[in-house]
C-alpha cells in the first residue's frame, strides 16, 4: 500500500511528466490558453492513460514476451485505437463535451505523455494495479500542469509585456519558472 502511494505522489509532483520529463509539451503550450479547455483536456488524457495502462499490461503479459521488437508498434496502435474509441464514446454519450474538446480529442494520439507513460510503466515492470495508479498520478500531474499554466497565461494576457516577448518565448520562460518551483518537491523523497 505504501508503495502505491509513493508511485502516485512521485508521478503527480516529484517526477511531474511536464516539468521534469518534458512529456506532453505540445498540448501543454497549445491548449493552455483557457482554463476550461485545459481542465477538460487533462481529464480526457487521464482517461486515455488509464485504458492504455490496462491494454499495455495485457500486451506485456501475454503477447510481447514472444516478440519484444513489436513493442513500440503495438503500443502506438493501442494508443491510437483507444483515442478513437474514447472519441466515439464521448460523441455518443455527451455531444456537448465532444464539441467542447473539438480537435484536441484526436490529437491525444500524438501526445507523447501517453506513449511515454506506457514505455515508462513497462521499463519499470509495473503490474496491473501499480500501472493503473501510475496512470492516475501521471494524468493528474499533467492536468495540474495544464491548469497552472492556463491560469498564469490568462493573467499574463492582461499584463503589459514587451512586444518581442509575447507568445511562445514568454510561455517558455513561465514554464521554466514553474518547473523550478516543482523541483522543490524532490525533497519529498530523500526523507
Amino acid at each position: 500500500m505504501d508503495n502505491l502511494i509513493w508511485i502516485f505522489i512521485s508521478a503527480l509532483l516529484v517526477n511531474n511528466f511536464v516539468f521534469s520529463y518534458f512529456l506532453g509539451l505540445c498540448p501543454f503550450f497549445g491548449v493552455s490558453g483557457k482554463l476550461e479547455t485545459a481542465f477538460r483536456l487533462g481529464l480526457a488524457s487521464t482517461f486515455v492513460m488509464l485504458i492504455t495502462a490496462l491494454c499495455t499490461w495485457f500486451l506485456n503479459t501475454y503477447v510481447l514476451i514472444h516478440a519484444p521488437y513489436l513493442r513500440l508498434i503495438s503500443f502506438i496502435v493501442v494508443v491510437a485505437s483507444t483515442v478513437q474509441f474514447v472519441e466515439m464514446v464521448v460523441k455518443k454519450l455527451s455531444p456537448a463535451l465532444f464539441r467542447a474538446l473539438g480537435i484536441y480529442l484526436p490529437l491525444i494520439t500524438t501526445n507523447c505523455a501517453i506513449l511515454g507513460f506506457a514505455i515508462f510503466a513497462t521499463n519499470r515492470g509495473y503490474g496491473l494495479l501499480e500501472g493503473l495508479i501510475y496512470a492516475l498520478g501521471a494524468g493528474g500531474g499533467f492536468t495540474l500542469a495544464l491548469i497552472l499554466m492556463a491560469g498564469l497565461r490568462e493573467e499574463n494576457e492582461l499584463s503589459n509585456v514587451p512586444n518581442l516577448m509575447k507568445g511562445t518565448a514568454m510561455s517558455m520562460i513561465i514554464a521554466g519558472i514553474l518547473s523550478m518551483a516543482f523541483m522543490g518537491f524532490s525533497g519529498l523523497f530523500s526523507s
Binding site: F19, S20, F22, L164, M165, T168, A169, M170, S171, M172, I173, A175, G176, I177, S179, M180, M183
Partner: peptide
Amino acid sequence: LLPPGGFIMLGLILL
C-alpha cells in the same frame, strides 16, 4: 542541466 534551465534557455533562444 536541470529541466528549468532547458525551458528558460529555449525561451531566450526564441526571443
